[in-house]
């Protein structure tokens, strides 16, 4: 899995490429962590999340929205993500964990929100390619 922060006029975009959809989701989440704080490495406390959405695109949106809101509610930067994704009929479910770095211990920018703007979820012969723009 690899991810990159990409240019956007006012905001920040993250691109992630991976062989599985789970790894690709994790790549975007790690990119989100890097966009907050480029040098942060490991969290101390483990948190669990579970999300259900009506499509894969909505699941990606809801997953990233959840991480941003968890950040403000628990006052930690989510990092070191793990996820599993399942589909049953029209419902996509993500169960995951992350570690939180207490925000008072790091210098971090604020990412306001995930957006649907230019969001891409593409499957090709090498695996998955995801692209997400975040509002800064």
């Amino acid at each position: 899995m690899e991810f990159h922060l990409r240019d956007h006029t006012a905001d920040i975009a993250v691109e992630s490429c991976a062989s599985t959809i789970e790894e690709a989701f994790v790549g975007i989440a790690e990119g989100l962590s890097k966009a907050h704080s480029p040098n942060s490495t490991h969290g101390t406390k483990k948190f669990g999340i579970e999300i259900s959405s009506e499509s894969l695109e909505a699941l990606l949106f809801d997953f990233l929205d959840m991480l941003i809101s968890e950040r403000d509610i628990h006052n930690v930067l989510p990092i070191d993500h793990e996820v599993s994704i399942n589909q049953e009929k029209d419902i996509w479910t993500l169960v995951g964990t992350y570690y939180g770095i207490p925000l008072e211990t790091i210098e971090s920018r604020e990412i306001k929100a995930v957006t649907y703007s230019d969001m891409k979820i593409e499957k090709n012969q090498n695996g998955w390619k995801l692209y997400v723009v975040f509002d800064v």
Binding site: R71, N75, L77, L103, E104, S108, E110
Partner: peptide, 8 residues
Amino acid sequence: KIPTGLGK
């Protein structure tokens, strides 16, 4: 006096 940045 004024919290700036994230998580302050």
